[in-house]
Design a binder for these strands. Sequence first.
DNA 1: ATCCTCCCCTAC
DNA 2: TAAGGTAGGGGAGGAT
Length: 800
Amino acid sequence: MSFDSLSRSDNTTDSSKRSRCNSTSSNPWNNGQSSSHGSQKGKQKKARQKTLGVAWGANSRSSFQRSPFSDFGSYMDVKNRKLHNQFAAEAAGSSHGGSHTLKPIFHGVSIFVDGFTVPSSQDLRGYMLKYGGRFENYFSRRHVTHIICSNLPDSKVKNLRSFSGGLPVVKPQWIIDSIAANKLLSWVPYELNQVCDNQPKLSLFFALKNASATENASSYPVCIVDDVAETSLVCGKDEKYIEVSETIEQRSMSNERFEDDGRDGKMNNASVHCYAAPIESCRAEPTFMEAEQGTLFQEEVQDSPDEPCTSGSNHLLTKSNTGEVPRSLFRRKAPKGHSTLGDPNFVENYFRFSRLHFIGTWRQRYQKRYPNTPVEFKSTSAKNTASDDPHMTCIIHIDMDCFFVAVVIRDLPKLQDKPVAICHSDNPKGTAEISSANYPAREYGVEAGMFVKDAKALCPRLTILQYNFKAYEEVADQFYDILHKHCKKVQAVSCDEAFLDVTDSIEYDPQKFAKEIRKEIYETTRCTASVGIAGNMLMARLATRKAKPNGQCYISYEMVNNYLHDLPIKSLPGIGYVLEDKLKQCNISTCGQLQMIPKESLQKEFGLKTGEMLWNFSRGIDDRVVGSIRESKSIGAEVNWGVRFKDLKDSKQFLSNLCKEVSMRLQGNGVRGRKFTLKIKKRRKDAEEPAKYMGCGDCENLSHTMTVPAATNDVDVLHRIIMQIFGSFHIDAKEIRGVGLQVSKLENADASKQDGRNILKAWLSSASINWRAGDINSHYSEKTHRGILDLHCDLFLIIL
DNA sequence: ATCCTCCCCTAC
DNA sequence: TAAGGTAGGGGAGGAT
Ligand SMILES: Nc1ccn([C@H]2C[C@H](O)[C@@H](COP(=O)(O)OP(=O)(O)OP(=O)(O)O)O2)c(=O)n1
Ligand SMILES: [Mg+2]
Ligand SMILES: [Mg+2]
């Protein structure tokens, strides 16, 4: 993501020098790469991508490496250090001729280490030699007796099996355990295909942590079961409800709006507390503080960060935890700049204030409020009876109007008709971003994403208000409570936006239905919502745009073409700045023009799926079905603001914090992952100072991935893996402007606890030879096996 | 053909 | 000063 190229205003961007946009001034996007927007886009595009592809192809080879020497000296937790010291002492002892005290337990054993192992290949070598075994640097069936391996990418596992020719592939714990027992243990329980559950027991993470305990790498937050905040539906009975109908685009589209007049401007007190969301077990997702509500920016907000509830690992426990060190104090102590350099708690603090983090993580919180949404209706489309006929389908899209502003402005009637925006800063020269602008402000051209200085330039009288994440959360909860109350098929899009499939209640007039829902939302939240109604999700969404603000709009089947003909292509969901620009260069700017292009041409130019999407959407065709949110495929965290490191140590420290964050999110969601991606934003050579204060500026986006065969959500393992990947970047820490960490190939943690062995066994046997398939379970009862595995878990933790 | 990695693009 | 996150879809190109 190259944020700087996103700037819609006309002031210079970080990359404006490198890439000049030859198209209209409205689209300065250049995707942060070299000038790809030249007039001969076709060839140039291909050339560019090819170049990048080759470059990355080369780099990507490092995504899995032979286990390097463990050079992570800086990362060593207490237990780790203890073990290392222990071995170091032994080694010292042996070199002084005490070797006779060590039993040659590995006599006759010759290992070959394949891939990234814990402990490292070098350490294993040391252990083997010390205890009478052999260590082979190269695989040879004649010499090697055991292959040692803890993590291998999928493809490698298959490979390994084919060339191992029946040699045991064993986890390194076998060696550690044997040393601990001072005798050669059977390797059978340590076979790679049995050791699926090499994670620390979940219970380890639930050990109660004192709220005042200082944070350290080996203590984990507790998941407190908090009482659920009731989302009381407060109805403002005195609110008036007026509806005005108007005709849009001929008869079959109607647009209705509400208007509300006087409301008592009851000020919420600006008390600071955690927003409480339903919590069932472990919530790792961040919480948000309530910013000074109802105050203009000028009044100091600096003290609010004292409030205790944060996303950090040390705050999950309690809502009354009074942070020992008031954050505001902290901040005044580090006035040097708001970067990773000044603040050891940067990640945590940053996320607390990030609006994008709030909307980005909202979905996870929603999923906890509405778990397992009616399981069925995802696939009902197949057996739908009435809704088989696309003409009959009726979709409602509903979206709150200028959500962030509307919520905060509820209690400020005087500002109702004045231009207002939500932003962290009111500095007329500042580069803080506008989060949301109300409709009066939009008249001046103020938009979300704009720098506040540009907004102020467009509208000097613009009033800036602070975020109130807690209130956003509450209103979103009320919003969805209402939707779910009235409709079974709800698909959440974001905290202020959803699709409803009302096909099955078609006997009920959708317009009336929408009106009632909007009314209830308004009476409950004192915020307005707009609704679009149409035969599919695409058209419903487009209808909502038409309906805003505070209105509703129905686009009948017959009206679709009429409506689309002159619609700018940018209005289609899925067409952003890049696609708009590319199409513009083909002289296509409306859906009508887009319809002229044959599907094959579009697919050739933009790819199979994208081409088809363009073709379909330009005609108002959309096959998607309203469905519940599926369980997420990936979980990650990234920070691309304020990231400045002076040396490698800084960057590793930061990375470590990010690992904690991601590990917590995985655990909070009850999943483990097998695929780990580290993303780094590297300042581009010759890049200027970022246009945005503390921004990442013009960067190269780098990413490397490692896939391992056993899923994990443990912070230590994650850290180890991430450090491994980080090493493969060979990057100067001073050049880093952003860091992101993503985990995918997720598995349910509970399931893998109970059935993981079977799952992995199935996976392995499906992918490989069945050697020894017979004895896997015959030797060990379920309980014994469990015990052994648990032992492994503990050892694994310690070894790390 | 199908998978995988490394991106880019999009939406909120 | 300021808090440019998150997740899914998908394309290019290489490996198998
Ligand atoms: N670039 C953006 C886009 C959105 N948001 C936040 C603030 C918005 O209030 C909220 C909902 O996004 P919408 O696109 O629904 O925008 P609004 O609700 O503000 O306005 P509209 O009336 O157009 O829906 O997400 C943000 O912080 N930054
Ligand atoms: Mg909205
Ligand atoms: Mg929205």
